[in-house]
Nucleic acid binder design. Structure first.
Lengths: 184, 184
DNA sequence: CATAAATTCGACCCTTGAGTCAAATTTATA
DNA sequence: TATAAATTTGACTCAAGGGTCGAATTTATG
């Protein structure tokens, strides 16, 4: 069902632009040339759409984690590769971290939080590895991780696809600044 | 009117915890032992509360910008001082950047966006100064700025006042990571 | 006290927007 | 083309929540 994905994407784009609660189902429908009722043929609820938006990103991030497995010399190196993947990912395909986790309830919320925690664990693992092998300066791992993960989340707010700055450029510079910030 | 500030603070705390749209006026009122109607004696609308929350932070940031004027040797130095102030500020006093700018409309929105832009300009100015005087590595200034400003905005999501990690520790490590990331 | 001013409240109004449903329309398929 | 399946819709229901209002209550103040 490709149309379902189209709905999720259209909604995601709108959520990113105006926020989850400031986007009505009617607006999403109109942006696809449909009526609201038709949306509910593809989707169970508005919350489900938000959920899928989040999951889509975490799925891609999991993929990225897998794709850099085995690559890279030391912790810092591995981390750089992964971070670069993340930056690329989030400036492409209309994928983007949403901030409205608070609007998810119950199972939806739990699942998303768990997926986010898993990503954070994967990143933290690399950071700690780097601290052990001497490639990353010793410091509080949590602060370290959240410092540069924040930059990724902040992308939603300012990055405009097709604008002056390419996702490629962002990825490169973000990695450089992270590397230099953490290198021992 | 100190009670008005109490309302803004209580609301701000709730907004941060559960999000603007997931917090009802009744809940805010209850958290202060008041009825909803009583709230409207101190406040014009829910939107005004959100507006004040934002302004409060930007006022403090403006203050910080002023407080570091004239201090510091070079661009990187000045930037570090300012960034440290920012980090301290946002982990104190219940102050915190909110993400719900999208929920503000008209004048409110314009004002907040303008204030944010002003802060960004101040920071960007220092970055460019640093690139000129050789203390900061040359790179795209916008990407540079948003990289570490993102970390500050991400604080809302994970920082818990009174938790294991102190605001002081965050400020220190954030500054260190920013410095190393940017130093020429 | 008495009276004015400052607060607070219960009850109400009203809009917005999510979600439903039976019927209509379009698109396969035999 | 007849019939079933897949889509789409207009019209509706319903609850949540922001905001208002006149009355009640509490707190100054002369």
């Amino acid at each position: 069902m490709a149309k379902r994905r189209a709905v999720i994407f259209a909604a995601g784009a709108a959520f990113r632009r105006r926020g989850y609660h400031n986007t009505s189902m009617v607006e999403i429908a109109r942006s696809l040339g449909l009526s609201k009722a038709a949306l509910y043929y593809y989707v169970k609820s508005k919350e489900e759409i938000l959920f899928e938006c989040h999951i889509m990103v975490y799925a891609a991030m999991d993929e990225a984690v897998k794709s850099v497995k085995g690559k890279g010399e030391d912790g810092l190196d591995k981390l750089s590769l992964l971070y670069s993947e993340f930056a690329r990912l989030l400036t492409r395909d209309g994928l983007a971290l949403l901030a409205d986790v608070d609007s998810l309830k119950g199972e939806y919320r739990d699942t998303v939080m768990a997926r986010r925690a898993a990503i954070e664990r994967a990143v933290t693992r690399l950071v700690k590895m780097g601290m052990k092998d001497g490639s990353i300066k010793k410091a509080d791992a949590k602060i370290t991780v959240f410092f540069f993960m924040g930059a990724l989340n902040w992308l939603n707010v300012w990055y405009e696809p097709g604008g002056r700055i390419s996702g490629e450029a962002i990825a490169e510079q973000f990695v450089a600044q992270m590397r230099n910030g953490l290198a021992a």
